[in-house]
Amino acid sequence: MTDWMIEYVYDDRADERDRLRPEHRAHLAELAAAGRMPAYGRFDDEGPAGALLIGRAETREEVEAMLDGDPFMVAGLIAERRIRRWPAVWA
Rank of each mutant, 00 (worst) to 15 (best):
I6H: 08
A14G: 01
L53Q: 02
A57T: 04
A33W: 00
R81L: 11
R82P: 09
A32Y: 10
E61V: 01
E58L: 13
M73C: 05
W86T: 12
Y8E: 04
R21G: 02
E23M: 06
D45T: 14
L52R: 07
H27T: 13
A32S: 14
D68Q: 12
G69N: 06
V9I: 14
R17K: 10
R21V: 01
L28M: 15
R60G: 08
E23N: 12
A57K: 01
D44K: 02
H27Q: 05
T2K: 15
A57H: 04
A88F: 08
M1N: 00
P71E: 10
L20P: 13
V74T: 08
D15G: 07
R56P: 05
E80D: 14
I78M: 06
E30F: 01
H27W: 15
A57S: 08
A39S: 15
E80F: 14
R81G: 02
R81K: 15
G50C: 09
A88W: 10
D44Y: 00
A75P: 12
P87W: 08
R13V: 02
M73A: 13
W90I: 11
D18A: 07
L53S: 08
A29H: 13
E23W: 01
P38W: 00
R25C: 07
R60F: 11
R21S: 07
G50L: 03
L53R: 03
A65T: 11
D11K: 04
G35R: 03
R82M: 10
G69L: 09
I6K: 04
V9W: 14
A88M: 12
G41W: 01
G55L: 13
R84Y: 04
L31V: 10
A49N: 09
A34H: 00
L77N: 02
D68R: 14
V89N: 03
R36C: 06
G76S: 02
E46Q: 14
E62Y: 03
A79N: 03
R85L: 13
E80V: 14
A29P: 12
M66H: 00
R25S: 08
R85W: 15
V9A: 09
T2R: 15
W90G: 01
A75D: 05
G50H: 06
A26E: 15
R82D: 07
G41C: 03
M5K: 04
L31C: 06
W90F: 09
E30Q: 09
T59S: 13
R17Y: 04
R17L: 07
P71Q: 06
E30S: 07
L77M: 03
M66W: 03
R82W: 04
R21P: 01
E7Q: 15
A88H: 06
I6W: 02
P87T: 05
R56V: 13
L77I: 06
A75E: 10
A32F: 07
I54T: 11
A75G: 08
P22G: 00
R84L: 06
D45F: 13
V89T: 12
L28R: 10
P48C: 07
E46W: 12
G50F: 08
L20N: 11
P22K: 09
A91W: 05
E7S: 12
A49F: 09
R84D: 09
I6A: 11
V74H: 02
D45N: 14
G47P: 13
A29L: 13
E30A: 13
